[in-house]
Amino acid sequence: MDTTRSLVYIAFCAAVIAVLAQVMIPLPLVPITGQTLAIGLVVTLLGKKYGTQAVCLYIMLGAIGLPVFTAFSGGLGVLVGPTGGYIIGFIPTAMIIGLYFEKFGYTYVHAVIANIIGMFVTLLFGALWLKLFANLTWSAAFISGVLPFMIAGIVKACIAATVGLTLKRRLQQAKLLQIIQ
């Protein structure tokens, strides 16, 4: 794929993550957001390489202070706050989802499995972060950082799989997404 087209896809998908990050259901410590849905959607659509680059671009934009994180927040303070582990975890999440697709292909069942695995990777990073930086016990980190998000995460994984594969197929049929795997 030509460099300009890949850069446009990466930038557009980083913007999609930023927009979906604003979809939020507040909870006491960490809100349920559209970010994880967006991560799964972007990687399902673009694959490991470009999907991970879009995630990294999104995180870099937020880190330099652009208001792309949840509730239009940005800056390094967000990355060292309670949600920082989830955000940092988006990078290995994207890579693992992409690796799964490379190994097993882009079927609906595999897309759901890849996105559920990705959801658990994000939750693992978030809980670990809460344990270390919010000084929670392991059980408190699990109860506040994983448990409330499991059902929503599975639903978002199914949505990311369905929408991501549909968009991918339609864009490929229109010859707008020819080379991305």
Rank of each mutant, 00 (worst) to 15 (best):
V163H: 05
A161W: 01
G74I: 08
T36K: 04
M95W: 09
V112I: 12
T83C: 06
A114P: 05
I25P: 02
T4D: 03
I17Y: 04
P148D: 10
W138M: 13
L37P: 10
L123Y: 04
R170Y: 09
S73C: 00
L99P: 12
D2L: 13
T137Y: 00
G164L: 13
G62Q: 05
A15L: 09
V16E: 03
I39S: 08
A114L: 07
P67M: 00
A63V: 09
I151V: 15
A152Y: 14
V112M: 05
T4A: 13
A94W: 00
T36M: 06
F142R: 11
G34Q: 08
A18Y: 03
L130A: 04
F72C: 01
Q22V: 12
A134D: 10
F125T: 11
Q181C: 06
A174Q: 13
Q22N: 10
I39M: 10
P82W: 01
F149E: 01
T44A: 01
A152Q: 15
I88G: 02
G47M: 01
I25K: 01
W129Q: 04
V80C: 07
Q35I: 15
G126I: 14
F69T: 11
I91F: 01
L79S: 12
I117P: 05
A134T: 12
P92E: 00
V42W: 00
Q22S: 08
F12Q: 00
L171A: 03
I151Q: 06
L176M: 14
S139F: 12
L61A: 10
A174D: 07
V55T: 14
G65T: 03
G164K: 08
K103N: 11
A63Q: 00
A14W: 08
A161K: 07
F125W: 02
I179V: 14
V30A: 06
R169Y: 10
L20M: 15
I32G: 03
I87G: 02
L37M: 05
L165M: 03
L130M: 08
A161G: 07
L37F: 15
L176A: 14
T107K: 11
L123R: 09
L20E: 09
V146M: 15
L132Y: 11
L124I: 13
K103E: 07
I180G: 08
N115M: 05
I117W: 00
G47V: 10
G85D: 01
A140T: 14
V163M: 04
A140M: 14
L128R: 13
A54S: 15
I96D: 02
I25T: 04
M24D: 00
L165R: 07
A21V: 13
A15K: 01
L76E: 04
I59R: 00
M24P: 00
V55G: 04
Q53D: 09
R170C: 14
F72H: 07
L66D: 05
A134M: 14
G126V: 13
Q22D: 07
V78M: 03
A38Y: 02
L76H: 06
F149W: 11
T3M: 08
F149N: 10
L130C: 08
F101S: 06
T162N: 02
V146S: 08
A38C: 10
G51C: 04
V30C: 09
I64M: 09
V109A: 10
S73E: 00
F133E: 06
L136Y: 08
N135C: 09
V155H: 06
G40T: 07
